[in-house]
Amino acid sequence: MNKLARLELKRNSLKPYHLAVSIISVVILSFLYLLAVIPRMDAADADAEMFMSYDFIVGLDNIVSMAIFSIMSAAMASKFIVDEYAGEKVIMLFSYPVDRKKILDAKIITVFSYTVISMLLCNGIAFTIFLVTESLFPLCQDTIDIGLILNCVSSMLCYSVSAGLLGIIFLWFGFRKKSTIVTIISACIVVSVLCQVIAMTLFAHFVLIIILAVIFLAAMLAWTSLRYQVKNMEV
């Protein structure tokens, strides 16, 4: 599997995705400061109070990151997988004496891993810079403690894995129609609804766990279905 994943990286250029991740990092960091500065912009607004908590800022930032990275994952999956199985490349792909399902697994694992690692790195760096500057020149009135840092790390991990899993679900939509557009549009629609739901249950951990479990199950079903489709494909 390692060899197949390595070959995926060799034959597909990651440069556009590295560039995208760099831009997203800047956007995420800016977004953190924007959230922290909201109460200062309109101190009279009672709703602005919630932005005074680091837990809320981190939670909201994680949701936005998950949305962005899951759409990036969908774009990457459409390039790495949908394009290859939809176009003329599929003949080349099926001419290799390697189990079709293993090639698909390698592709999905590559896209999933890239999404999770890049989101972890991106948010990890953004949170670190934000919390360091907050400890020196605080914008927010909340306190930074070990509980907050643990919450940051665990939620970041959770949302990063979710972004990767969502990418697999969006891939399933796109693969059915062999269409990049369907992949991206399905990603945008599902993510916008899902983010609304998660944002409403930001501090209801039980509901959040159920949502994440559903995402995990849906991704596994999508993966199984994709493996079945690829195994039986005629080109």
């Binding site: 060799k10 034959r11 176009g87 003329e88 003949i91 080349m92 001419s95 290799y96 004496p97």
Partner: peptide, 27 residues
Amino acid sequence: GSLVETPVFYEHLSAANNLQIHLEYMG
């Protein structure tokens, strides 16, 4: 060894790199 319809390649790679990847898949 086969050539079916219009051959497609990894466009951003050289001829030698294309063959190298093919060999790796072929084991």
